[in-house]
Amino acid sequence: MTAEPLVALRGIEKTFGSIAALRGVDLDLFAGECLGLVGDNAAGKSTLTKILAGVHEPDRGSIIVAGEDVRFPDPAAARARRIEMVFQDLSLCDTIDVAGNLFLGREIARSGFLRKRAMIDAAREMLAGLQIRIPNLTATVGSLSGGQRQSIAIARAASFDPLVLIMDEPTSALAVAEVEAVLTLIRHVKARGVAVVLITHRLQDLFRVCDRIAVMYEGLKVAERRIGETSLEDLVSLIVGSGGA
C-alpha cells in the first residue's frame, strides 16, 4: 500500500487492573478499505476499537488521523473526527424511541427545542435507505427485538457520513437477509471512501467484503493478511494461536 493511511494506531497499550488488554498494537486503516479484525474472545478487539472511538484512552501509544497526532479524551472528540462505531453492546437508550436513538447526541433542534416531526421523517428515510423495516418509529427501543435493536445501532453509526466506520460484531443477532443488507452497506460505504473496521466471528463474511484481515491474540496483533493471500484454514489456525505471523 503506497497511500498514506487515513488512521494509524501506533504502539497502543491498555491495562485494566491486572489485565493487559492491549500490549502494543499497530494498525493502519485506509480510505475505501474494509479491515476485518478477528481473534479469540478477550483478544482485545473491542478494547482496540473503543480506543479509536474515544471510549477508552490508551495508557501508551498514539492515534494519527490524516497525518495528525490526535487525542480522544471522550467519545465526542472521536465523533467530531467522524469516527463512528457500532458497539458490541449496542449502547442504545431503551426508554427512548427509535427516532430519538438514531439522533442521540445530534438531535435536530431549533434553538434548543426538539423537532420531533423532522427527526421521525429523517429517521424513516435513514432506515429505508438501509432497507431496515421498523414499523413504529415512536416505539421505545427497549420493546424491540434483538435484530431490530442491532439494525438501529448500525443505522445510527452509518448514517451521519462517517470517515471511519467501526462495527463490533454487528450481525450477531441478525437474520440472513439482514446480514446481507449489512454486507451490502459495507460495500456501499467503502465505495464512498469510508474506512471500515469489521469485527466478526463469521469468517466467511470477511471474505466477501474485507480487503485485509488483522488477527489478534491475547492483546497483540499476531498477523495481517491481504484477503487474496489467506484462506479460512489459515485464519482459523492464526486465531487459535497455532500459526505464526
Partner: peptide, 21 residues
Amino acid sequence: TTYGRHVTAVGANLEAARRAG
C-alpha cells in the same frame, strides 16, 4: 428540548449517552 432528551438519555443508559457524544 434537547436538554430534556439528554436528561432522559443519561438516566436510561449513562454510558450510551456518553458514547453518543
